[in-house]
């Protein structure tokens, strides 16, 4: 494992911890898109189908369990926790799951490395992860006061993707393998979706102003 991959994983982990901190400690999910969280739960459920059959490392298994457990518990918190649920911006979080899930499923059935159930599900999870942030970005744009934790959560998620690209570039030059093109392209699309957010995030940071995305 290289430094970019480790930094990417740690940033991903930090994003989850920031979100759990907001939900568990402040008991608020204001500004957080349940749609995006449900899509992430689906991403991990379909990607880690081989978690118990294909052992890679202790680190790998633990991280998979953390991402599975945290994504499903975040969804549970927003939907079922009495106090947390009250802060959910239901009327603003209007993105339709099916507009995202269906095209990803069709694309995974058409473009994959091998036409087997596990392989198609793995490919589907990559396509879905690439666009799962969209409901969250739409919600951010509609939110007048984006609180610090929500801004940091999205920033950390974007940073995680950017670090993964550096990791792939590093692996390309240091390892002798064929490239998983699907992973690269889906990952690149995913990172580009954050470009606009990054721009306004750094602007607000530079000017010491509150983060706000223009409609």
């Amino acid at each position: 494992m290289n430094i970019f991959r480790l930094a990417g994983d740690m940033t991903h982990l930090a994003s989850v911890l920031v979100l759990l901190l907001k939900i568990h400690t402040i008991k608020s999910c204001a500004g957080i898109s349940l749609k995006t969280q449900e899509l992430y739960a689906l991403v991990f459920a379909t990607r880690y189908l081989d978690i118990f059959t294909n052992y890679i490392s202790f680190y790998n298994t633990i991280m998979k369990l953390i991402f599975l457990g945290s994504s499903f518990s975040i969804v549970w918190y927003i939907k079922r926790h009495k106090i947390v649920h009250r802060s959910y911006d239901k009327d603003q979080d209007t993105f339709r799951h099916w507009f995202i899930v269906l095209p990803c499923l069709v694309l995974a059935l058409l473009i994959n490395e091998r036409f087997t159930f596990k392989e198609v599900m793995w490919t589907f999870s990559l396509y879905l992860e690439a666009v799962a942030i969209l409901p969250q970005l739409v919600l951010l744009q509609r939110t007048r006061n984006i609180d610090n934790l929500t801004g940091q959560y999205v920033f950390l998620l974007g940073a995680y993707r950017a670090l993964y690209i550096l990791n792939w570039i590093y692996r390309y030059f240091t390892e002798d393998h064929y490239i998983h093109w699907i992973t690269w392209i889906a990952g690149l699309v995913q990172t580009l979706l954050y470009a606009d957010f990054f721009y306004y995030y750094f602007q607000s940071w530079k000017n010491n102003a509150k983060l706000e995305l223009p409609a």
């Binding site: 890679i56 790998n60 991280m63 991402f67 793995w122 390892e175 002798d176 393998h177 490239i179 998983h180």
Partner: peptide, 10 residues
């Protein structure tokens, strides 16, 4: 001889 990269990422 190149082979497929292992799926060892998260």
């Amino acid at each position: 001889e190149k082979d497929q990269a292992p799926k060892d990422e998260l």
